[in-house]
Simulated scan of single mutants.
Amino acid sequence: MKSMRNNNRGLTPQSTPTKIPLSQRRLKTKPALTLLGILLLGNIFWFVLWLLPSGEKDSSNEPVATIDGDKITRQQWLSEMESRYGKETLQDLVNEAVMEKASEKYDINVSKEEIELEIALMHSAQDTTDTSMENLTKEQLHQKIRAQLILEKVLAKDIVIKDKQTAAYYKENKSLYNIPTSYRTSIIMLKSKNDAENVQKELKSGSEFSVLAREHSLDTASASLGGDIGYVTADQDGVDRSISSAVQKLKKGEVSGPVSLSDGRYALLQVLEVNKGQEFTYEEVQGHIARELAMEQLPSTIAPEVFWSEFKAKWYYGEAQ
Rank of each mutant, 00 (worst) to 15 (best):
W77T: 01
K112L: 13
I179S: 09
V98N: 04
R146I: 08
S83I: 03
K71I: 07
I188S: 05
W77R: 05
V154G: 05
T128V: 14
E139L: 11
E62D: 07
D163A: 11
I179D: 04
I67K: 14
E62G: 04
G86L: 07
I72D: 00
E118P: 05
D68F: 11
E113Y: 02
V160N: 14
R184T: 11
K144C: 09
D70M: 13
M81R: 01
D158P: 02
D68Q: 12
L155C: 01
L149K: 10
S186I: 04
T128R: 10
K171L: 14
G69N: 09
K71Q: 10
E113K: 11
M133D: 04
A147T: 10
A167E: 12
I179P: 00
T73W: 01
Y169N: 10
K144V: 08
H123G: 13
M99D: 06
D158H: 09
A65H: 11
E116T: 09
K87D: 11
D130G: 03
Y85Q: 06
Q76P: 00
H123Y: 15
T129P: 10
E152R: 12
S111V: 02
A156D: 02
L93W: 05
V160L: 13
D130M: 02
V94F: 02
L93G: 03
K164D: 15
E114V: 02
A147E: 06
G69D: 04
D130R: 09
E152P: 07
E116R: 08
A65S: 14
E114G: 01
T131W: 02
L121W: 00
Q75V: 01
L149W: 06
Q148I: 12
K174V: 06
T129H: 13
K105V: 07
K101P: 07
D68N: 13
E100G: 13
K144T: 09
Q75E: 03
A102M: 09
A156I: 03
I115K: 05
D107F: 10
I150H: 07
A97M: 14
S111G: 08
Q140H: 11
Y183C: 10
P180Q: 00
M122S: 11
T185I: 00
Y85E: 09
T129Q: 14
M99G: 08
Y177A: 06
K153I: 00
Y183K: 07
P63M: 02
T129Y: 13
Q76M: 08
Y106N: 08
E113M: 05
S124E: 12
Y183M: 10
R74L: 04
S186H: 08
N173D: 06
T129N: 13
K87E: 13
E139N: 07
R74E: 00
K153N: 03
M99H: 08
R74D: 08
E172A: 14
E96F: 14
E104L: 15
D127R: 15
E88W: 13
K112A: 15
I179C: 01
D68R: 13
A65M: 13
I108A: 08
T185F: 01
I145A: 01
L93C: 04
T66P: 03
K112Q: 14
I179F: 06
H142S: 01
A120Y: 02
D92N: 15
K105Q: 08
K105W: 11
I187A: 00
T131L: 09
R146G: 04
E104Q: 15
